[in-house]
Design a protein around this nucleic acid. Sequence first.
DNA 1: AAATTAATTTAGATATATCTAAAAATATAT
DNA 2: ATATATTTTTAGATATATCTAAATTAATTT
Lengths: 220, 220
Amino acid sequence: MKLSFTEENYLKAIYHLSEGSEDGVSTNAIAEELNTKAASVSDMIRKLSKKKVIDYQKYRGVQITDSGRKIALQVIRKHRLWEVFLVEKLDFNWDEVHDVAEQLEHIKSPVLISRLDEFLGRPSMDPHGDPIPDENGEIKVSPQMPLSDFEEASLGIVVKVPDSDPSLLRHLDKIGMRLGSKIRVIEKVEFDNSALIAIDQGKELYLSGEIAKNIMLAVK
Amino acid sequence: MKLSFTEENYLKAIYHLSEGSEDGVSTNAIAEELNTKAASVSDMIRKLSKKKVIDYQKYRGVQITDSGRKIALQVIRKHRLWEVFLVEKLDFNWDEVHDVAEQLEHIKSPVLISRLDEFLGRPSMDPHGDPIPDENGEIKVSPQMPLSDFEEASLGIVVKVPDSDPSLLRHLDKIGMRLGSKIRVIEKVEFDNSALIAIDQGKELYLSGEIAKNIMLAVK
DNA sequence: AAATTAATTTAGATATATCTAAAAATATAT
DNA sequence: ATATATTTTTAGATATATCTAAATTAATTT
């Protein structure tokens, strides 16, 4: 199945919009996501439906099919692998990679992506902490544990912080730690369970054991 | 100046076709190069002419302008840098890279290519021995001629092979000839223009005149 | 349930790309 | 130099994409 650049983008948008809900995706939602008009979406929907990558009944929204989901996940896989390449190999900042990856994700080559994956050391997540689907479209939810359980010299990405405690969140904000932040645990202090960490390859600082217990990291 | 994928391909074709000759490039030649019809070429020519990347007078062929050449050379630069990446980093064979590079060359990003160039160690030629233009479109050339023009008992180094013909590249791979291979021309057969050569001071073998014409050697 | 509002589709308009066939211009041969 | 052949352009056809505006369907309110 060969899809155009635009068709792939529609499919990706539909995939993202259907995540977390069983309902069909509305025409208007797709139009908004892709900065286009509902009429254009209607046209494209009929086209994608004919290719069996979505299910569609008039006025009822669309559902992505298994084959459509597989394609969308391959595009997402490519996008995220390229992001890893840009950040790890070409020293892009993670806020600079999106637009380029948006182009690179549409390159068609049977071997390119598997070679790139290997070259990058088969990473499990992109620079923002999002998981990278495998060749079959499977997403492994990466194992995660509190920062306090990490060994010295290990890496993790912030995936969860307690949302119930404003004073903690304010502090995290102040030290520049947010969801997706890359954490390197440099040293663990036995005395008080505090830890010396580096955030996003930047400044080093000590974190109390109390805080470290409350920050969930995905193992990298 | 922002050109579409297709416009860039036209410009690249016109650049290649005008190399080595002062005459304008004919509509038919462009059509053949791009596997399209003369009528379509006429349309595109008017479009590119309006953008001042080519000069054009009806029925008189086209000449690439300085600004057009600059754009073409940037596309070529991108193509060749990506080829280096594919071969050096992703272990592609040099006969596998052309189609992928053909896609990658159209990725638009101000920083991507300079970062890639740096990552690859600012290479001066691609895996086929073609020179890589710099950011300003300058090409550094070394004196070279086809193997078929070499005298008996002369030496050369493989610097270029056509990147468009996988069957030739596969054959060269099989006989152990690659970029940088040291070639000694032992004997030239007048009858069919074939040549007896030695590769890297190793085994001797005959090369047809057809192949010899397509292999560029730097004079040693 | 009827009326109103919102969402979606359809119809038709506009723009673009690329083709075939015919016309026009140029090149070549006698 | 004229006739013939070739190349190139133009005109018109077809296909595609995307928009606006109108029509239709569904959802919400009263």
